[in-house]
Design a protein around this nucleic acid. Structure first.
Lengths: 339, 339
DNA sequence: TTGAAAGCGATACCAG
DNA sequence: CTGGTATCGCTTTCAA
């Protein structure tokens, strides 16, 4: 073996043994000092020597070794959502993350590309998280089982339906569609278009929203028309060009951003909003207030991150408890000028 | 010790030893089979027995134990950005994450609440990542040193300035302001307002953008006026109410969203855009195209996630190489109707 | 082709 | 008050 001159021996990562050697004590003592173990008393000079040695070497404990030894960790795993997610939801996820951290858990977002369903669950299980928060659908009962067998004390899904064995935060987007549909009906509109984004991944939200509109109008004479639409000016213009033939007097535009897109295209076509066609969005973004006419929208109420964090903590402390299911999505119409 | 009836003995997590026992082989054999080790040949019947045993027990390997033994991992750590980040940047981060995963790294986003600077670096170092991608500022030279001592073979910062010892992807937002300023000047505007958001965390971007405008106009007679503004209708209305006194003939509105907010407030006040005041935003969001007048904007070009992923991979393979510094933020004006 | 055993880094028990 | 040592789960030489 020859030393390659250009590759300066990459100093090995210092371990607690190195600290012990430098401080002239045993590894056990190092551990006691650095963890402030209260069960044993270490003399002040020794403590100082250990701390100095640690600092001098730039010692940082090895999380994997620690949790291996301890047999558990406080890692909460959150697979990063695979679908492009709006500002509302990502703010919610941030808040959640923050709240969980406050409870002294280590929140880790794990990007799982490609592998679906149970393979993903296995990949997550390898990290032996104490809890797993899964946004969206895609986790099945056997996925939950895999995670629990791997020691996860709590599995919580955030999505449209609950999964056997897991806690569920039901975010039922049908409510959103239902609120929009009921509102338009009450405003005297009876031929209602529903925008369904063509962007992949959004079906998770758009199908239930559409379904909600249908349900709201069930038993009435109202007609519902599905309107596929890409998030793109030209697509919107094409849709608007056919507008008269569609004979619609209202449209639920999936969310505020699609509503803005469509409303602009309609107005450019000479369709008057709301006189000819009422428009309502969802998410209650700032931009809706800035449009003219001001955009009616469905305000979505998500649970507080703190409540959710407490659910996680409860579940971790008492893994035996029956899975809780909470409906956590509130939808209320904010009526402005476009409907 | 009494068994609590309600707490059914939580079956211990199965280990490779359990698999070995069930399959009637040694742990070594289990390892060979499950890792498809090519150096040794295991008989087909044995392989089957091992696989079946693993499946029956729901065995999932323990990542910590594995990487402890291996002495290294392929974890790329990405501290999640602490500031609220726009759609542009978060899409970039997603793409990056995806590209890095394609190179067979495990991307992990780690949420570090509260602890700043070097404490954060120490927390990251505990995970012994092979590489660390740090967005924003906040990592100092000694933080980099901590990470390297902990075995990180590559530290890459994505931010306004490079850090000693780390690779840097310089995202210089001065360029954005400079492009906007030069554009407005060329359009014959000479009294230029620059919106500076009051939302905390955004200074990281807003200060350089302001500075860029100043620089673009350096040596001219043009005047630059800083305009603090909260992302809020009332704040915008208040600002617009004073508009005539400000005597500005143009405004760089920080980004498209603030531009939309301000433009609406100006129009409500009877200020004509662009005749009285030119408005330009940044980020080239869809919404700018939907406004009337269509919003001029600064299109920001971020590097492709794939290039960046390759930089990471190169750095990991050759940790001795000198840190690379790349200026990766391109800014070009998209001239529409508002300026 | 398979098994025994060492060792990765940190911790906690039990002696001294 | 401090040191030796077994242990966590897994991989990998070395022997059989």
């Amino acid at each position: 073996m020859v030393q390659i001159p250009n590759a300066p021996a990459p100093r090995p990562v210092p371990t607690s043994a190195d600290v012990a050697r430098l401080a002239g004590v045993s590894r056990a003592t190092v551990s006691y000092v650095l963890n402030n173990t209260s069960a044993v008393r270490i003399s002040e000079p020794t403590r100082r020597r250990v701390h100095e040695a640690a600092k001098e070497l730039g010692y940082v404990p090895h999380a994997a070794a620690r949790s291996l030894r301890a047999g558990h960790s406080r890692m909460v795993l959150m697979p990063s959502p695979t679908v492009p997610v709006g500002p509302l939801y990502s703010q919610f996820l941030n808040e959640l993350q923050w709240a969980v951290s406050r409870l002294d858990y280590t929140v880790v977002q794990y990007g799982t590309v490609g592998l679906g369903g149970d393979d993903a669950a296995r990949a997550w299980a390898e990290l032996r998280p104490v809890a797993v928060l899964v946004p969206g659908s895609g986790l099945g009962p056997q996925g939950v089982e895999v995670l629990k067998r791997a020691g996860a004390r709590a599995v919580v899904t955030l999505g449209p339906e609950s999964v056997e064995g897991a806690h569920a935060l039901l975010m039922d987007h049908e409510e959103v569609g239902r609120a929009a549909g009921a509102h338009l009906h009450a405003r005297g509109r009876h031929r209602i278009g529903v925008v369904v984004p063509e962007e992949p991944g959004l079906e998770l939200f758009s199908r239930p929203r559409l379904q909600g509109v249908r349900r709201a109008l069930h038993g009435t004479e109202d007609r519902v028309r599905e309107l596929p639409l890409a998030y793109d000016e030209h697509a919107a213009a094409r849709l608007a060009a056919h507008w008269p033939e569609l004979g619609l007097d209202a449209v639920f535009a999936y969310n505020d951003e699609y509503a803005m897109l469509l409303m602009r295209a309609l107005q450019d076509q000479g369709v008057r909003v709301p006189e000819d066609t009422a428009v309502i969005g969802a998410d209650d973004l700032m931009l809706g207030r800035l449009l003219r006419p001001r955009l009616s929208t469905v305000h979505i109420e998500l649970p507080s991150g703190r409540d959710l964090a407490e659910l996680v903590d409860r579940a971790v402390r008492d893994p035996g408890a029956a899975p809780e299911t909470h409906r956590v999505l509130g939808a209320t119409v904010v009526h402005r000028d476009s409907s």
